[in-house]
């Protein structure tokens, strides 16, 4: 295989001989973030159990969980996958295409929400005979 290349791809060997301290610190960071997520998850559970749950509050907490998740993803990619130690060029070619997810997520969820609106507005306006395969479900279980 070596005959295939006119020159080596790797210009210098980065020093990875540091201690494992950084790895363990990241482990604790990830654990704390996960515990925080779980705490918020349980908080949401308790809000839901109460009478008249405050939906704005729940939404806010869910947003917080999302941010914590992104923080976790950052630590995994940057430290565990060593992307933070790579040269800037590589980091950019990975991170920039992932920005496509922004519109990917936004447009899909937006349209999903719009189907809900349409369904709620027009459901029940077309009369159809209701036949439900309840027996089939039971049969499948047996």
């Amino acid at each position: 295989m070596a005959a295939h290349y006119s020159s080596p791809e790797i210009t210098f060997h980065p020093e990875h001989t540091g201690t494992t301290k950084r790895i363990w610190r990241t482990f604790w960071v990830l654990s704390v973030l996960t515990i925080l997520e779980l705490a918020i998850g349980l908080l949401i559970y308790n809000i839901h159990k109460g009478e008249n749950p405050n939906h704005t509050l729940v939404l806010g907490f869910k947003g917080m969980v999302c941010i914590l998740t992104l923080a976790k993803a950052y630590y995994i990619v940057s430290v565990f996958m060593h992307l933070g130690d790579e040269v800037r060029n590589l980091i950019m070619t990975i991170v920039v295409p992932l920005c496509l997810f922004i519109w990917f997520i936004a447009a899909f969820l937006w349209d999903g929400n719009s189907w809900k609106t349409l369904r709620n507005r027009y459901n029940g306006t077309t009369p159809i005979e209701k036949v439900v395969p309840a027996a089939k479900e039971k049969g499948a279980k047996d």
Binding site: S6, S7, P8, E9, I10, T11, F12, P14, E15, D85, E86, V87, N89, L90, T93
Partner: peptide, 25 residues
């Protein structure tokens, strides 16, 4: 990091080397 010194002035994109200092694999 000590790698920063090597990065300085390296012509990453000029060919003959990986612009990422990484193997193709």
């Amino acid at each position: 990091m000590s790698t920063a010194a090597v990065q300085q002035g390296t012509k990453w994109w000029s060919g003959g080397r990986s612009p990422f200092n990484a193997s193709y694999g």
